[in-house]
């Protein structure tokens, strides 16, 4: 794991300030979706060997949720964006 995560709000910070939640590429199904969709969402993972998008919380910093794109083999971080703003289509 890289030692630093570049928070779009706080700049490069030690990764110990951040807490991982997990896979950010999962799309939450609609509330009335079938059980197969919910099963896929809750239990199945792509678990890629390579680039992986994941939610990290800057828990000891600005407390924003971030989407970190990271390589699971080299641990190199390729991009960090604010999760809420990314969802709105904005870039920080």
């Amino acid at each position: 794991m890289a030692s630093l995560i570049s928070c779009p709000h706080c700049g490069p910070r030690p990764k110990e300030e951040f807490t991982i939640k997990g896979d950010a590429s999962l799309g939450r199904p609609a509330a009335d979706a079938g059980s197969q969709d919910w099963y896929n969402y809750v239990y199945l993972r792509d678990n890629p060997k390579g680039l992986h998008k994941e939610y990290w919380h800057h828990s000891s910093g600005c407390r924003r949720w971030l989407i970190v794109e990271r390589d699971t083999v080299t641990h190199k971080i390729h991009g960090v964006s604010d999760a809420a703003l990314a969802k709105l289509g904005a870039s920080v």
Binding site: G22, D23, N40, Y43, L44, R45, D46, N47, P48, K49, T72
Partner: peptide, 18 residues
């Protein structure tokens, strides 16, 4: 450790993270 990678070769998606 690499179950996802080999299962993927058979089109199987697993409830596993490495």
């Amino acid at each position: 450790g690499n179950s996802t990678v080999v299962a993927d070769m058979a089109g199987l998606r697993l409830p596993i993270e490495s």
